[in-house]
Simulated scan of single mutants.
Amino acid sequence: MYFFLNYLALSDLCYTSTVTPKLITDLLAERNMISYNNCMAQLFTMHFFGGIEVFILTVMAYDRYVAICKPLHYTSIMSRQRCNDLVTTCCAGAFLLSFVQCLLTVNLPFCGPNEIDHYFCDVYPLLKLACTDTHTVGILVVANSGMMGLVTFVVLMLSYFLILWTIRAYPAESLSKALSTCSSHLMVVVLFFVPVLFIYIRPATTSPVDKVFALFYTIIAPMFNPLIYTLRNMEMKNALRKVWCQKPLWIGKHFI
């Protein structure tokens, strides 16, 4: 689990770095501008690191399934070589996803207004600016990003269904431990996938509320991932419990 958490943290760092610095600069600047080349670079890198995060979360669900449902075979199934191969596959799949996404956008003609109604360069806002019929491209974008997100989300939910089916007959203590192991990952999955599916699974349209949902999977979810997994650490929980449980006592004019 910690092996994949390392790569999840790295993808979170790179993913937010593609959006957050430019967003902060735009909030401080009077004119918010980005060149065409930088826009395409942001589109590619955002979907690349976002794709890595999606696939890493899916692999982590499989890792939890093997650990809980097949504990005696865990070390042989999830060997170090297998883990390295899975991470490599995640990167290759994310590269293919972002390459196709960028390829569908880079050939579009932009000859009209050049104002993007978003805080970063994404596919749907760019399709809205294209001065050509983008219906076919919009369908391909949904088939690329939307179906990828939907399929991985179904695989995630199937993993947790199999986990719940396996542990239904466990003793109460073992059941509680298994659920506690999966709760943090499930929380991260819901926080990340729900807004992603809302944006990319529907037809290629834009609305003002899209920017609110985009905040969840570009900034809020990656920011909360370290906090959610840190609070799963027993030593961290004990340290926080000691801090919270310390009540200052008033003696005379001093606190102790």
Rank of each mutant, 00 (worst) to 15 (best):
T89R: 09
C90V: 02
C90M: 07
C91D: 15
C91S: 14
A92K: 12
A92D: 15
A92P: 00
A94N: 08
F95K: 09
F95W: 08
L96P: 04
L96S: 13
F99P: 03
V100P: 01
Q101D: 02
Q101K: 07
Q101P: 00
C102V: 01
L103D: 05
T105F: 00
T105K: 02
T105I: 09
V106D: 01
N107Y: 04
P109S: 05
F110I: 03
F110C: 01
C111G: 11
C111F: 03
G112R: 09
G112S: 08
N114I: 03
N114M: 07
N114R: 13
N114S: 09
E115T: 07
D117T: 10
F120N: 03
F120P: 00
C121V: 01
C121M: 04
D122F: 15
V123N: 07
V123K: 00
Y124R: 13
P125Q: 01
P125A: 02
L126H: 07
L126T: 09
L126M: 14
L127T: 09
L127M: 14
L129F: 01
C131H: 05
D133Q: 10
T134W: 03
H135F: 06
H135G: 05
I139C: 09
I139R: 15
I139P: 04
L140P: 05
V142I: 15
V142T: 14
V142P: 09
A143Y: 08
A143M: 11
A143I: 05
A143K: 12
S145P: 01
S145N: 13
S145L: 09
G146I: 06
M147P: 05
M147G: 03
M148R: 15
V151K: 03
V151A: 12
V151E: 11
F153W: 05
M157I: 08
M157E: 08
S159G: 04
F161C: 09
F161Q: 12
I163A: 11
I163M: 15
I163W: 12
I163V: 15
I163Y: 13
L164E: 13
W165K: 14
T166D: 12
R168S: 06
R168I: 10
Y170V: 03
P171T: 00
A172I: 01
E173V: 12
L175R: 04
S176V: 07
